[in-house]
Design a binder for these strands. Structure first.
Lengths: 348, 348
DNA sequence: TATTAGCACTCAAATCTTTCGAGTGCTAAC
DNA sequence: GTTAGCACTCGAAAGATTTGAGTGCTAATA
């Protein structure tokens, strides 16, 4: 059965009211909306239909109705109109920063602050290439390798060495490293390349090994999955999770970046919607312990087609309207930073 | 009234039992300890005395006794004998790391893992001096400043510039910067010094300003209070906090580094005990919302007399024995790393 | 045919009642 | 000084009662 207009209106009112109050919504409450002009009895009949169709459910016999996952889904897809442009306060809290890492951390923080939910942001899946590499002699026994990745992700690595090098040696290494590595993507840096470098340099085989080890370590670190989170403690504010042990599990899960990556990886780039905002409601989340949560994700795009994900984790009874519009604005702002202003990812 | 031996024994048994079970301890329970050979009635009399003296209290009329803050204090100061060396499993989980920052993060983590409490570690209050500074040209419009502080704390700063510099210019700046800044403590880097450098360099006044700005930013960042925390979610496991809103407040407080610094700052270097282990019980904590917590702190020392603090935050009903001995071992290990092995703070 | 008033019914939540038992304090005997 | 014995207390758990929001159904109405 298709939902007729009236059923849609009623369903929308039920869900909107429930989102506000968190209490099961009764027929009387709905019948009070003036523009409807229906008695509670009529609403009851409609509600019975909506329940049969699986959009709402009674937590117990003599209670009002609350939305099911299916109900939320219908609401998000068909009923929820988005906030008027005027209503949405532009955040503009993002400062310009040069380093992608800092920018994304900031995004997570601002978003958590604005929404009062837990937020997570992944770095874009762009092909990370070495922009610049610098080996310096800190003291007789120590080198410092600094690797700047495209997007100004910076990795430092202390390399203890046995052999004493003079400045000229270090300079030579720098030229060697930059010749080979500049512009190379991180995946390119393999044994083969290292061997080629070794061949070219000839001498210093032991120390070269130490240096390469350091650089490989740094590169691996740079290649690690980067997820920035913020507002984890907001999870404690979701009363529907209730049980402290459940909350605790959820919180721990939220701190486990490995787990979070699973949460987000399926989301990136499924559709080609405008900013690809997606909502995962309750059981739609494949990760365990998240049945009582919803996750809203958005995709931001970098000039070369690389994409990253921004996610908001909240209770099912989440202010979808606000979250979606906030995310939309944020991704617009981000795209702006990445593309027009030629900021973070400036190739120079 | 002084506590006689028997009262001490009974108090110790009461507290030890309570630490284990978390339930109020009754006279019958204590009378069952063989080596005591006293009836419950006698214990009751003694308990009445101990209560009058303020060491224990009844949560309600017909319940057993639980320790007061004063009781805990007496236990920690006089009754608790520390764990036998044999019982304590050496952690040895600390890997050698070159960078102070990473080491301290690891300390916090290992400690949280071992104790199941929330932990916090402050960086030592040593006079931070610049060990090495390196300016590099990343691309035409961007410089990268890398500053290595004593202890191998590394700060990176991206400096956007307007003027185009050739490599020789950069080299000149590097020499200039290192000449002035190497060995300088962070406090030394003030306007006066910067002006001196400017005078020496003569030209490029605009770009020098940009560079100095970047370096000052990085230095300020390095000078910021550094506190590393771990195991915050363990707070959720303290049942005595109970209320989720209280727990939540505590958790938020724990994530606020500013607040934490207050918590620890009074502790450093009060006494000159062996590793200066201190216990703050309940109301003894001046920070609000922490009345139901205890904090155990220890001091580690660096060769030049700099000190840092390691703290463990747990419920009042905390395993003081274990925590104190764990902290003792850890500080010994840390002192070992800092002093003997000449690791992290190696002056080269 | 759709809507509604009316009414009996349901059931969670709040409140009160009862029971139970661990633990106490006190007294009198040892 | 120690202990057995006993009356007493009071929280926690379990059960009983009340309340009220909400339902479904039926019969009357427009």
């Amino acid at each position: 059965m298709e939902l007729d207009e009236r059923k849609k209106t009623i369903l929308k009112l039920i869900i909107a009211t429930y989102l506000e109050t968190g209490e099961p919504v009764g027929s009387r409450t709905i019948s009070k909306f003036n523009d409807l002009n229906l008695s509670s009895a009529t609403i009851r009949n409609e509600m019975a239909d909506l329940e049969e169709l699986g959009y709402i459910v009674q937590p117990h016999t003599s209670a009002g109705r609350i939305p099911t996952d299916k109900g939320y889904r219908f609401y998000v897809d068909n009923l929820m109109e988005e906030k008027e442009e005027a209503e949405v306060e532009k955040s503009t809290l993002l400062e310009r920063v040069d380093r992608m890492e800092l920018l994304l951390k900031q995004v997570a923080k601002v978003l958590a602050y604005n929404t009062n939910y837990a937020t997570l942001v992944t770095a874009p899946n762009y092909r990370k290439t070495v922009k610049f590499i610098q080996l310096s002699k800190v003291d007789e026994a120590t080198l410092l390798a600094v690797i700047v990745i495209e997007g100004n992700l910076i990795k430092n690595q202390i390399i203890p060495i046995d052999t004493i090098l003079d400045n000229e040696d270090v300079l030579k290494f720098n030229i060697l490293l930059n010749t080979f590595l500049q512009g190379a993507s991180l995946e390119d840096i393999n044994l083969e390349m290292i061997n080629a470098m070794k061949k070219q340099s000839g001498e210093y085989s032991v120390i070269l090994d130490q240096i390469f080890q350091g650089i490989v370590d740094a590169v691996n670190e740079a290649n690690e999955l980067e997820i920035y989170t913020s507002g984890a403690t907001n999870i404690l504010k979701y009363p529907e999770i209730g049980d402290i042990s459940k909350t605790s599990e959820l919180l721990e899960k939220f701190e486990d970046k490995e787990e979070l990556s699973h949460l987000l990886e399926e989301t990136t780039g499924n559709k080609d919607d405008f900013h690809d905002i997606q909502v995962y409601i309750g059981e739609e989340n494949t990760v365990s312990n998240m049945e009582d949560c919803s996750i809203v994700t958005a995709t931001y795009k970098m000039p070369e087609g690389a994409k990253g994900t921004i996610g908001i984790l909240g209770p099912k009874r989440m202010d979808y309207k606000k979250v979606v519009s906030t995310l939309k604005n944020l991704t617009i702002e981000l795209d702006d930073i990445f593309n027009k202003r030629k900021g973070v990812n400036d190739d120079g």
